[in-house]
Design a protein around this nucleic acid. Structure first.
Lengths: 148, 148
DNA sequence: TAGCTGAGTTCGAAAAACGAACGCAAGGGA
DNA sequence: TCCCTTGCGTTCGTTTTTCGAACTCAGCTA
């Protein structure tokens, strides 16, 4: 009656934080954004236990972050896991993590992959901005107002 | 020998994802960004068990996300938990979660707090952009290249 | 001296995660 | 036909985490 309550709180930050804050979920999303789609591939590349993998995939399905899409395997129909639009919209969350990781967790030039803008070849980074004036914002630029 | 290995992988996404992907950690950071600083306050407002709270705070201390800062309480010196610069730089991660939550998890106008730019009063949102041309990017605009 | 408070620590019970084995449906080869 | 393989789970006994109530401890305060 405590962790679960954050998942149903009327707060647009606590609900996503509770969902993605379950063990393995962020790492699973990373793997999905890197292109993994099938149960067996998640299991072998991540070394996650099969029962937990089943559970996490089901939660993401229920939440509408993933969907099951049929594919052909030697003539048989099987299903793979793909991002819905809701899932794809999590991209900024992953990129924010990576932007932070690049700044604070990269002892040297170690990255297992590079990201760049297809059109111009530039780098990729997450930022927070004002929807009105477009300024880049940090925590101190933002006023928090409790709601009645 | 599996979840922990992501925390030491040479990947600037998996390391932050493993760190913040532990249960309670994202919710704890949310609470910190909302202004909570003291053990007792975390414990009562979040209803987290005291032993897990101790553990999570210690991990964030070790990682340099939080620091202990002395304060006076009835003449005695106590310590509270505050964000370091590394911790403050997690703001975009939280804002990306919230931006997503606003779009996909808000049935009606329910938010427990409002955020706005101090200077102009505008809204706040996270986005991903190209460091060269400044274009806003989605997953499909970004090329992933494995490193040798 | 006794009580209170903030900040943990301890410990037995409950829940979650682990991992190896099992199930199962469909295709392929002998 | 029978058996093997594959992909995708499910089961189940063991280990790890989490829970939560009680305990500790230091330093005020009455």
């Amino acid at each position: 009656m405590s962790y679960a309550s954050f998942a149903s709180m009327p707060c647009t930050l606590s609900r996503p934080a509770a969902l993605l804050g379950e063990r393995w979920t962020l790492l699973l999303l990373r793997q999905i954004f890197l292109g993994t789609r099938r149960f067996e591939d998640f299991q072998t590349t991540m070394e996650i236990s099969r029962s937990v993998l089943t559970d996490r995939l089901n939660v993401l399905l229920q939440e509408g972050v993933l969907k099951r899409v049929p594919y052909q395997d030697d003539g048989r129909t099987r299903y793979e896991y793909r991002l819905t639009q809701k899932g794809k919209d999590l991209y900024p969350v992953l990129m924010a993590l990576r932007t932070w990781g690049e700044k604070w967790m990269a002892p040297e030039e170690e990255e297992s992959f590079h990201l760049h803008h297809r059109d111009c070849g530039g780098g990729v980074r997450a930022k927070v901005e004002c929807t009105d004036c477009g300024a880049e914002l940090t925590a101190r630029d933002v006023q928090v107002t409790a709601r009645s």
